[in-house]
Computed example of a mutant assay.
Amino acid sequence: MLAAGVDPSEAARRVPVQVLAAALGAPDPVSAPVDAAALATPYATGVVGPVADADAVDRAAARRLGADPADQPRAVAVLDAQLLVQAHAATGGLVVEVLRRAAGSPGASTRQLIETVLRDAPPVRSTRRVAPLGGSARAAAEHADPAEPADRLVELRLDGPDGDATGGAPPRVLAFGAGPRRCPASEHAVAIAAAVVDVLREPAC
């Protein structure tokens, strides 16, 4: 990509998606980064832009999900597409931010930079969860307006310093979530990001 004149920040977004697409056996890994970029915003927000954007999203989704359901189970294709979108938005975003910081801290190791970014400025700054209300809170909510759901949507911050950190309890890193819904591929994401950053930090690049 670099030899072809692709900007390093653009390569940072493309490479994680292309590598993952090839590993998953996804169709046409070379075009996967373009499709993942088209799907990223609607995936995260549920909002599709103007008609032209909507058409591009539909075409990208069709390429990623495949025209023939017999090729593979639909659920597998959907999960693969989600992984590619996350590789574009999260892993690619991690690479871009680490490269930005590396420019100002050339002596820092890639691993140190990645850990710092994941702790203080992860590419995914928040996530949303549905929190069930219990006991009297649920009863009060249902009584106030029976048409309103008794559960509530909450936003959880994944960035910033850990206010509970102490000398005996190092800062927690929440970039990949926590508990049963923690990202199951955090080690893979860090490994891909580190490899891309290491190459792009080489003097020849």
Rank of each mutant, 00 (worst) to 15 (best):
M1I: 14
A3G: 07
A4W: 05
A4M: 06
V6H: 05
P8D: 02
P8L: 05
E10R: 02
E10I: 07
A11K: 05
A12D: 02
R14G: 00
R14A: 05
P16M: 06
P16A: 09
V19H: 03
A21H: 00
A21P: 04
L24E: 14
G25Y: 11
A26T: 05
P27K: 04
P27S: 08
V30C: 07
S31R: 12
S31H: 11
A32L: 08
A32K: 11
D35I: 00
D35A: 07
A36S: 10
A40T: 15
A40F: 14
T41N: 11
T45P: 14
G46R: 01
G46T: 05
G49S: 08
V51M: 04
D58F: 00
L65T: 06
A67H: 13
D68K: 14
D68C: 10
D71W: 14
V78A: 07
D80Q: 15
L83Y: 03
L83D: 01
L84F: 09
L84C: 09
V85H: 11
H88F: 12
A89F: 07
G92H: 00
V95K: 03
E97C: 05
L99N: 06
R100S: 05
G107H: 11
A108N: 11
S109Y: 13
R111E: 12
Q112T: 14
I114Y: 06
T116S: 14
P122T: 11
P122Q: 12
P123R: 09
P123M: 13
P123W: 10
V124N: 08
V130R: 15
G134I: 13
G135T: 08
R138I: 06
R138W: 14
R138K: 10
A141Y: 01
A141R: 05
H143I: 04
H143C: 03
P149Q: 04
D151W: 09
L153K: 10
E155Q: 14
P161L: 08
G163Q: 09
D164N: 04
T166E: 03
G167S: 02
G167Y: 02
A169T: 13
P170H: 02
P170F: 01
P171L: 00
P171E: 06
R172D: 01
F176R: 02
G177A: 09
G177M: 04
A178L: 08
A185K: 06
H188M: 11
A189R: 06
V190E: 09
A191S: 15
A191L: 15
I192D: 07
V196Q: 10
D198V: 12
D198L: 13
D198H: 11
L200Q: 08
A204I: 13
C205V: 11
C205G: 08
C205Q: 11
